[in-house]
Design a protein around this nucleic acid. Structure first.
Lengths: 193, 193
DNA sequence: AATGATCCTTAACCTAAGTTAAGCCCATTT
DNA sequence: AAATGGGCTTAACTTAGGTTAAGGATCATT
């Protein structure tokens, strides 16, 4: 069952007791998502934390020219949400879209708050989870302000080799903040070396 | 007293009980820091969370050419730390330096862990704090991959007007990921408009 | 088999941003 | 009063990366 995978994931942080497992179980909803299907669109309110059981998603914004900019990918055992809209309860300016057919588990805000209040362990787990995510993002910002596109691309390949194989280069270019044409040029330069 | 300011800060998240206040009080150390003084240097291990009571700091990395790249500023009522080194216990690759004469409160890792274990409220508070920081960083990444330097500069002025007045432009340029010369050029273009 | 999408690449040309170098202005220090 | 040093600007020149447009490859759908 899919929630077993989520429980196993939490156990890597802090082992859950039976009571926590069953409460979690009853507060999580499983969904099957098709390729290209959205689980969040601009002007929606983001009501869930989404855990990816299988498949892959992207979180992105769209600029005034209609160009997409990838903020985050999430595949197996990763979380994805628009934390800004989730917190504020206001309309999102982002999209979450399946890149592959996927299975997810979603937890609603009320249920997450319930877990926080009845089992403080979840405060701890989610604190550590987001601290790790924060660290990752901080490294990305440092890369963005200090490295060339080529360096960022090579770093991406090194850090996410599996994703790099799974994703079309257009999606990687969007994540790196460059055009697909320029990424193509970089790839040729790298091969030549 | 300086810890009153920290307690007032925490109270904006969740009010602290007397027991929590006194435990916090005894686990926090006040320091006075001079302009240009470091509270973290490359290859140090980051042992503290630092709360800025007054003054201003920058967190930055230095690249192979010796150029500094500002990851974060922190002024009154903000936290600054190298969360990566703090967590892993490994040597930091970053610097934290006072931009102004400052007063800070530092909490050591053992003491923070003590607070987490005896008062789960701190798990909650730090979770929410870092969720907010995560959101901020995510917006910055989106800016970095989708906007021009001019747009990023104007957004910085709008988002941090006080900081923008307080900081030399060289520091802002470093934060935006551009050279001071180019920022100067942008400023002239903006004024002309 | 044919029709589109989507993607990847190439190439010519363009522009945002970096580099180098010089000069000025202020504040501190001597 | 000079001297130092940080910060800000300007300008000439270079380069990383974007734009536009085209063609080919791959894949799913009819």
């Amino acid at each position: 069952m899919a929630t077993d995978q989520l429980i196993a994931y939490f156990n890597t942080y802090i082992p859950l007791r039976e009571s926590e497992r069953s409460e979690l179980n009853s507060r999580v909803v499983e969904r099957k998502i098709k390729r290209r299907q959205f689980i969040l669109q601009e002007n929606d309110i983001c009501k869930h934390y989404t855990f990816v059981v299988s498949g892959c998603f992207k979180l992105y914004g769209v600029d005034k020219n209609g160009t997409e900019h990838n903020l985050q990918f999430a595949s197996e055992n990763e979380w994805i949400t628009d934390i800004s809209s989730f917190h504020s309860g206001k309309e999102s300016r982002l999209y979450i879209e399946a890149i592959e057919p996927s299975i997810i588990l979603q937890i609603e805000k009320i249920n997450l708050i319930y877990l926080y209040h009845h089992h403080p362990k979840f405060d701890r787990i989610f604190r550590v989870m987001i601290e790790n995510k924060f660290e990752e993002l901080q490294n990305r910002v440092l890369q963005n302000i200090s490295s060339t596109a080529e360096e960022r691309y090579l770093a991406f390949l090194a850090q996410y080799p599996t994703l790099a194989n799974r994703l079309p280069n257009t999606q990687i270019a969007s994540y790196l903040g460059i055009t697909p044409e320029f990424l193509s040029k970089l790839r040729r330069i790298i091969v030549k070396k």
